[in-house]
Design a protein around this nucleic acid. Sequence first.
DNA 1: CGCACGCTTGAAGCGCGTCAAAAAAGGTGG
DNA 2: CCACCTTTTTTGACGCGCTTCAAGCGTGCG
Lengths: 217, 217
Amino acid sequence: MQTSTAFVTEKELAPARPMALHSPSAGFARPQPIITFNAGAEIYAPGDKATSYYHVEFGAVRIHRLLSDGRRQVIAFHLAGETFGFEADRTHSFFAEAITQAGLRTIARPANDEASPEMLSLALRGMMRAQEHIMMIGRQTAVERIAGFLLDMAERQGGLEHFDLPMTRLDIADYLGLTIETVSRVFAKLRASGLIKLRSIRCVEISKHEALGSLCA
Amino acid sequence: MQTSTAFVTEKELAPARPMALHSPSAGFARPQPIITFNAGAEIYAPGDKATSYYHVEFGAVRIHRLLSDGRRQVIAFHLAGETFGFEADRTHSFFAEAITQAGLRTIARPANDEASPEMLSLALRGMMRAQEHIMMIGRQTAVERIAGFLLDMAERQGGLEHFDLPMTRLDIADYLGLTIETVSRVFAKLRASGLIKLRSIRCVEISKHEALGSLCA
DNA sequence: CGCACGCTTGAAGCGCGTCAAAAAAGGTGG
DNA sequence: CCACCTTTTTTGACGCGCTTCAAGCGTGCG
C-alpha cells in the first residue's frame, strides 16, 4: 500500500482525495453522501480548515502528527462507527489518513460551535481516550502497551475472539511510542506464550483473554 | 507536605477536604463560594460522582492516575484561571489533588449534559492538550520533554521571563513519563548550558527562550 | 518471475531507569 | 534564632529495556 516512513512527505502518500461518491442511503435530514478514500489517502492535513466532523462508515483511519525530524506519533485510530475530526480551533493540527479503503460521512460543524449534547459527549469521550493513551505511553512497558492495545482493538471490533488489524506494525509502533522491531518482538513473545495466535499476519486471535488482561497492570 | 510516592495510598495524602469557605465575592448569578484546599488535599478520586467542574481561582492542581503497582501518571496540571473536572461518565476516573494551597470555584454540571458552547470549547481544548501530551511522551527525548514543559509553564503563567513551578520534581517526572532523577539531571544540564537559571529550586528563569524552543523538535 | 514492501530476527549500543547516598531546603519546637 | 528532623533534590555508578543497525524472510502484485 504505502510506506508511511518518516522521510516520505504526506502528499506523496496520498494517491487521491475522494475516490468515489455513493449516493446517500436515504432521507433528507442531512444524510451526507459517503465519500470513499483509498488506503493511504489523506483526509485532512494540518492547516486545513476544520469545517466538519467525520463518521466512519467502513474501513479505518489514523490521526497522526510529525515532528520536524520525521518522528511520527499516531494519536488515534478510528474504526467503523466512530466519529473523528474534532478540533479546538477552526483549523486542523493533525493529519488524518485512511489506513484501509474507508468510507466517511461528513457532519457539518456549526459555524459558532453551538453545542449539541452529542458533540460534547463525543469530545469528552475523545478526551478520555487521549488520557488513557497518555497513561499507557507514559508509564507502561512495551508488553503492557501491546496487550492493552490488542484488548482495545478486540473490544472495539465487537469483542470477537479474533479480529483483523487494519494497520501496519509501523502504525502500531507509532501509536504506542515504540519501534516496529519492538512491536514485532512483543507479538512474537505473546504468541510464544500462547496468549495470542496469529491466524495471519494481520489477523489476531486472543487465546487467553484473562492472561492478556492481567498483563496490562 | 506529602510524599506522593508510589506505595502511599491517596487517602493518606489528603490531610483534609475543604479547609475554609470564603464568601462569594458578590452577586447572585451563580457565583459559588471559593473552596480552599490545602497542599496535598484530595479534590476528588476515581469513583466519586462527577457532579461539577472546577475553576481554579488560585494555586495549582494535578490530575493523575495510578496503576495497580503504584506507577503514577500525571495527566495534567491546572493553574489559576483554568477549568478542570470534565468527565465523559458521571463518575470520575482520576485523582485531582491540590499541589499548593488552592482556591476552587465549582461549576454545576447540567444534569443532562445540555451543552453550552463554552463547555464544548473547554472539552475540545482539553482534548487538544491531551493530544499534544501524547506526542511529547510518545516521541520526544527527556530533554525535549522538559524544554517543552518549561516553555508551556512559562506561557501559562503569563510569559514572564521567570516563574515558579508549583509542583515537585516527582510531579514533573510523572507528568512527563520520566523519573525524578532524570528530571533533575536534565535541569542541571539546561542550567549548565545557560539556557535556564534556577533562581531558587522552584523558580525558573528562561535565559535563552529561542534556544530552549529549538530543543523541542 | 521478481521486485517491493512489510515483517521478523539477531547483535550491539545507548538513554533512561534503578539503586544508593549525600546535600539542600523546609518546617517545628525549644 | 538555632538545633533537629523530614522531605525534596542532586549526584554517581551501574543495569536493563528498548532502539538502532543490519540481514533475512515472506507475500502480494505488476
